[in-house]
Design a protein around this nucleic acid. Structure first.
Lengths: 191, 191
DNA sequence: TATATTTCTTAATCTAGATTAATTTTTTAA
DNA sequence: TTAAAAAATTAATCTAGATTAAGAAATATA
């Protein structure tokens, strides 16, 4: 099952077979049940995860005690609390499985070692981060220019299959509004 | 003046002196007057810029014809339309000087060549992107959990000097609301 | 120094989406 | 197969912030 990660890497970089293999050897497989946590608020996050199968949401709890979904992660995405992972500070967010899932995990210590030695793996992660940056930027742009109804429409258009996989209240939270309002939108659409 | 970029790189990576020098040689100095454009919507963006001095805003024009500020850039930040630059598609945004400014510019072609050869420069850009990612993530988190008034307060607390440098209507736009509403907030604060 | 342009403020009115609360539907688990 | 828990809906009411429209300050330019 490490082939899935291998293929992902080879899409963006060209490590030698040996380099790649010793990288893959650093990963452990981990299975996570729906609703289990990969990372919890307050903990130190010492690993980065590559999703093989399943779906996750990252969220924080605001002052009113309401869970706000920051992001979703699905197959072939990297997952971690970046802030906590990079700066080794206690996590401010939670990452929870939204389905029964499987991930490959690597420790920060091991990743750091590999990244001092491998050009191609630095390239790989640089390119991944460029893509993440573009996605974040687009999202901010959407948030600032579309109404709730339009955000929902655009999300459904771009992720038709994914919409089926998650409960609506999570999607509402991710889009920045309440589940009640999402219901209202959907009721409007039906007419 | 390339020392400023050199020092920035050395904060995060350890290229050899020779490697670093040949990288720095690829940059041209460019001076930009307040209100001039570095990148305009519809153009192809073939360069990445490092800000030596000054201040920029990136923005797009929404359907109602209103300019929405996506980001600011100041000294020691990298600037480009990432989406257009990476994917070589026409830019959807504008980047405009908000002060008389100076940047170092490098072409995508040259940057790509260097990045196929240098481990340490891949590391440098990877680390920069990690920081950008953390900042974007925090921003999304703030946008979803704070009121307009709180967003303004937090921004002023974290960037007291910068607030002085830009017109209020740009800050209002960046924070996601109208200049009229920012005035209202400021009036409230005074009491 | 005067004039034009850009930026900021104030105030009245309006609306997208929040809040509250009750009800229904779906899913889970015993 | 049924009770309990979780998720979704509906509807009434409320509010943060938008919109519109003037006017006042500040800045730039002649």
């Amino acid at each position: 099952m490490k082939d899935q990660l291998k293929n992902h890497i080879l899409q963006f970089a060209n490590p030698t077979e040996k380099e790649l293999q010793s990288f893959l050897d650093l990963f452990d497989l981990k299975s996570i049940e729906n609703k289990e946590y990969l990372i919890q608020e307050g903990q130190y996050c010492r690993h980065q995860y590559f999703i093989l199968k399943g779906c996750f949401r990252s969220f924080f709890v605001n002052r009113k005690g309401i869970e706000k979904v920051i992001n979703f992660g699905i197959e072939n995405w990297w997952l971690t609390d970046f802030d906590g992972f990079i700066n080794q500070t206690p996590s401010e967010i939670n990452i929870q499985a939204a389905e029964n899932s499987q991930v490959l995990k690597i420790s920060k210590t091991q990743l750091d070692i590999i990244l001092t030695n491998s050009l191609e793996l630095n390239r790989y992660f640089r390119i991944i981060l460029e893509k993440v940056r573009i996605a974040d930027q687009r999202r901010i742009q959407f948030m600032y220019s579309l109404s709730g109804e339009e955000l929902y429409q655009v999300f459904c258009d771009h992720n038709p299959k994914f919409v089926q996989r998650i409960p609506q209240y999570m999607l509402a939270s991710y889009l920045g509004f309440t589940p009640e309002f999402l219901s209202k939108i959907r009721a409007r659409k039906k007419l």
